[in-house]
């Protein structure tokens, strides 16, 4: 299991578009990936889960990947966080 913290810098937080890109990109991975914020935890492969959390700009979130391809899944998260300007 690996985890990593991110600070959300995108002005709109993780809403529709950034959420779609993140969730869409994680679909092929076998690992379980979760997003934790404000004492709540959702499946990062679930668009409804991620949207329902409504992560806002400036939030500090925790992402946990667990499974055979956890490293690759985490690398994908990092890549999207950066290329989409979501957070760092």
């Amino acid at each position: 299991m690996i985890e990593k913290q991110y600070n959300i810098t995108s002005a709109e937080g993780i809403h529709a578009r950034p959420a779609s890109v993140l969730v869409g990109a994680l679909a092929p991975f076998k690992s379980e990936v979760t997003l934790e914020w404000n004492d709540k935890k959702v499946n990062l492969k679930s668009i409804l889960g991620v949207m329902s959390l409504g992560v806002s700009s400036g939030a500090n979130i925790n992402i946990v990947a667990n499974g055979e391809d956890e490293e690759q899944a985490m690398a994908k998260v990092a890549e999207i966080m950066e290329t989409q300007g979501i957070g760092n």
Partner: peptide, 16 residues
């Protein structure tokens, strides 16, 4: 068009 990408994701959503 991105609205419909999001709709497509809903139809693949494991939580749904």
């Amino acid at each position: 068009a991105a609205i419909f990408s999001a709709h497509l994701l809903v139809l693949s959503d494991p939580e749904l």
